[in-house]
Design a binder for these strands. Structure first.
Lengths: 149, 149
DNA sequence: TTACCCCTTGATGTGCACTTTAAGGCAAGG
DNA sequence: CCTTGCCTTAAAGTGCACATCAAGGGGTAA
């Protein structure tokens, strides 16, 4: 598979795939006799992994550190574990920040509807839609925050 | 309160506070007779709101659009609602991506321990620590992904 | 042969969200 | 009077993660 097909398959641009290779986020890719990249499914899976971790906010630098520990087949399990745990911590914090912001916006959204001229049907539909997210912290966020924002 | 104190109170640099004001993420700040910013608690709360939304991944541009709808005290409730819902969608998707990546790394972490020379005590401690996160999707992620990554 | 479409590398450009620098003003302390 | 320490604005610089461009090569089809 050439780089364009790989790009279409993964949704990652050709330039980004080359960039990832240069930055060692994916292993050195095999070349055809004329020097073109010949991309197989193993590379595709790694591109997808990189995409997932990038979407989750992991930096190129952290991702490279993490991946290099795997590519070097030495006994660095302890470091791998430490790196994983570190990254997990970062991501869990990020997730919680995100959840807090979501709760904040949901709170605002609910207060909107109190002042809106929407029909009862619309109101109940939206309440159903957001019921699960509001359930835990229903309508009472932190005291410190400016409820106008 | 001068800008330095506000910076210390919020953890946001003075330059960033000035930048936020210029970008209309916070309202025009009152000045002392000599032209220095005089920051009150209302501004502090807005800075904190901005910080929270930024941490959640909302762009400056989206944040400004959102805030301007509030600063203009017209009847734009519909647009406010639409913008809020749009942003909520973005953030929920982001949160889910993040959770997927966390699950992926937790899966890896668990498989590490199977091959590690750690003591039983360490193992059980870590399992307790991560029990809640693994509970829902215990040990069986998607088939498509490269389990070496 | 020309056109077209794919590819290569290396260099340079881009957008975001700030950070840093430059040049200067005001007020207090020694 | 001079230094210190806060402030101001405008402009330029920075780091990340790519995107785009320039200059060239290969393969196929009309």
């Amino acid at each position: 598979m050439n780089i364009k097909e790989a790009s279409e398959k993964t949704g990652v641009s050709s330039a980004a795939i080359r960039y990832y290779e240069k930055e060692s986020l994916i292993p050195a890719i095999d070349r055809t006799p004329v020097g073109n990249r010949d991309i197989d499914d193993r590379i595709i899976r790694r591109i997808r992994f990189v995409t997932q971790m990038r979407a989750a906010g992991m930096s190129i630098e952290n991702l490279r550190r993490y991946i290099q520990l795997f590519d070097a087949q030495e006994d660095n399990t302890k470091e791998q574990k430490a790196l994983l745990q570190e990254q997990l911590g970062v991501m869990e914090e990020k997730r919680d920040d995100l959840q807090a912001a979501i709760d904040h916006l949901n709170y605002k959204l609910n207060h909107f509807y109190d002042h809106m001229e929407s029909t009862e049907e619309e109101l109940r539909a939206l309440e159903r839609e957001h019921a699960d997210k509001v359930a835990k912290q229903d309508d009472t966020p932190e005291d410190e925050s400016d409820h106008n924002f």
